[in-house]
């Protein structure tokens, strides 16, 4: 009660997500051919720890306190993690998308939800092509269950987190 989104909101999210997936498919070839910055070193498909660091950043991965870095005006993606830029996710084939999804879900099984994790999960779900392979199907169901579990434990209604969890549960289940 009070945590669940309305049916109308869910339907809107499903429609928007579908449009996002279509646009992504249309532009995948274009973004695949775009030049990547020299600091973007994508891990190999099997490198679970490498992908966790790449997506979430060394600060979250190593559970370090976030220290404000005033003298550094640019964003250090090694520390804060690379966001799911189209030029990055378009380079990932379906096997890699599924593997990284699995790595991040493994992470989420033991750790807290963060905005960085939410963005990557959303982006990887958008990259999954249908028909879903059985392992992908099983993975995203596991993801929705974990989101539901974390949501149920949330007592103080950290609003931003509930919204993000609701979004993932909605996209997976619908």
């Amino acid at each position: 009660e009070g945590y669940s989104p309305t049916l109308k909101w869910q339907q809107q999210q499903v429609a928007s997500f579908s449009a996002v997936r279509q646009s992504l498919n249309k532009r995948r070839n274009h973004w695949q051919s775009q030049h990547l910055d020299s600091n973007v070193a994508m891990p190999t498909s099997e490198d679970e720890e490498g992908w966790k660091k790449f997506c979430l950043g060394e600060r979250i991965y190593s559970e370090l306190d976030v220290v404000s870095d005033n003298e550094n005006l640019g964003i250090d993606y090694i520390k804060v993690g690379f966001p799911p830029f189209l030029s990055i996710v378009s380079r990932m084939n379906q096997a890699t998308v599924t593997s990284v999804l699995e790595y991040l879900i493994n992470w989420f099984e033991k750790k807290n939800f963060t905005p960085e994790l939410g963005r990557w999960l959303y982006a990887l779900l958008a990259c999954l092509e249908k028909p879903l392979l059985p392992e992908a199907h099983s993975l995203i169901r596991q993801l929705a269950r974990r989101c539901s579990e974390v949501r149920a434990q949330e007592e103080n209604k950290n609003e931003e987190q509930i919204l993000a969890l609701n979004l993932i549960i909605c996209l997976v289940s619908r």
Partner: peptide, 27 residues
């Protein structure tokens, strides 16, 4: 459907996610 080329820059998926999460507040 309108042409969404303008909003489909390298950050399009990030913006789509942030927009979806923000939209709940208005639901």
């Amino acid at each position: 459907q309108s042409d969404d080329s303008d909003v489909w820059d390298d950050t399009a998926l990030i913006k789509a996610y942030d927009k979806a999460v923000a939209s709940f507040k208005n639901a």
